[in-house]
Design a binder for these strands. Structure first.
Lengths: 218, 218
DNA sequence: TAGATTGTTAATCGATTAACAATC
DNA sequence: TAGATTGTTAATCGATTAACAATC
């Protein structure tokens, strides 16, 4: 059931995991019953959390039965404002774009890279996978024609500020920053999540014995 | 002042940011006074949080004056159990390793990649930057000889479980996973942080207007 | 109906914010 | 000393856990 109040950030992040997860179940023709208990155990969260998270979505489970795969997936996509293969762009260097395709097969997670941009003008025009690499100057035109809203930013640290400004101007309003930058300034009205690789590596070095620890709340 | 109780995870992550930050100040010969207020404003956190976080570190600031750069950096490094250029290994594919060097210049953040491993046996032997790429089968020997403890994992999703098992056996006890996997199982006693790229992209797509939002608590 | 599982409310836990006495 | 800034304690906030009535 959908509530009046907005879902907390932590719930939204878990809901997006459920979306990937259910998508994968559907793709693999899974037909076992899908209950909060099963989701919880597969994803390593508590079953109460699963039910609580799902209560923010405009969708009802069946007491005694669980959640029908297709309807749940559809409802999660609607809640998260996702199309079936949600589009995003990537900005980085050619090698990284190539490597990323192997590490992160977007289609398997219900996403689709629709444009690549290189920070290096010399790399414009080459192909990476199915896509042509564009120069950063083409951002406006390409983004406008594709109607995409989110970006994965993986440029060199020095180019981050400029890249964010360009992305914003081109109409991108959500960015995931893979490039480590200490500075936190970013364009007004843009939604940014930082993955701080160096900080997290240092935190891992420090963490004592650690029996179990997963992470990344944002 | 160092406290008896352990610092919360969120504080450890911020402390590791302060470590990068102060290291950068020192490298750039900064000589302005270093106060909780300045750190807070530069890094986008509250000044109370800065003081609170630093209270876990065995080190005292000077009321009315602030924190001496070098001593603070040294104390943070000690708290986080870091050497001056803390070593880590990376497992992925060749293109990604190359691209990563541009996106994440480790030395600037007080870290140092000491060994690269490719999931693709055909890529063993090639050079990326200053390092030779090793085959995964060499993990044990290389890690043992270098005495490294943390890893950045960026293999294809299908190889993650195997990679983690090998890393653990080789003596690595902390890993940052860049590869998206839904499954949460991982070797006992290993400290793992997941950066969930697809989930975070989906969450960004969903997030409403957003005036300000930074993230990644883990 | 009985068994299973949902949706929601109340209690707990942890982290953040604010306030202030201690001190260079 | 006076001004500034620290370290710490108390109050607030949000998220997680646990418990249970509602329902297929």
């Amino acid at each position: 059931m959908s509530r009046s109040s907005r879902a907390p950030e932590a719930s939204v992040l878990r809901l997006s995991r459920y979306h990937c997860y259910v998508g994968e179940l559907i793709a693999s023709r899974d037909d076992q019953r899908l209950t909060s208990q099963r989701i919880a155990s597969d994803l390593g969260v508590s079953e109460e959390a699963v039910r609580r998270d799902l209560s923010f979505v405009d969708f009802e489970g069946r007491p005694g039965a669980g959640y029908p795969h297709a309807e749940l997936h559809e409802a999660l996509g609607r809640f998260l404002a996702l199309s079936s293969q949600h589009p995003f762009v990537v900005v980085g260097n050619r090698a990284l774009l190539e490597g990323l395709e192997i590490m992160f097969p977007a289609a398997e997670f219900g996403l689709r890279a629709v444009a690549y941009f290189s920070e290096n003008p010399a790399e414009a025009g080459v192909r990476v996978g199915d896509l042509e690499v564009h120069d950063l100057s083409e951002l406006d035109a390409v983004v406008a024609s594709l109607g995409v809203r989110i970006a994965l930013v993986a440029t060199a640290p020095a180019l981050v500020q400029d890249t964010l400004t360009r992305l914003k101007r081109a109409g991108i309003d959500g960015a995931l920053m893979l490039t480590p930058v200490l500075d936190t300034r970013h364009p007004e009205g843009m939604n940014i999540t930082h993955f701080r690789i160096p900080c997290t590596l240092k935190a891992l070095a420090s963490t004592p014995v650690a029996t179990t620890a997963c992470g990344c709340k944002a």
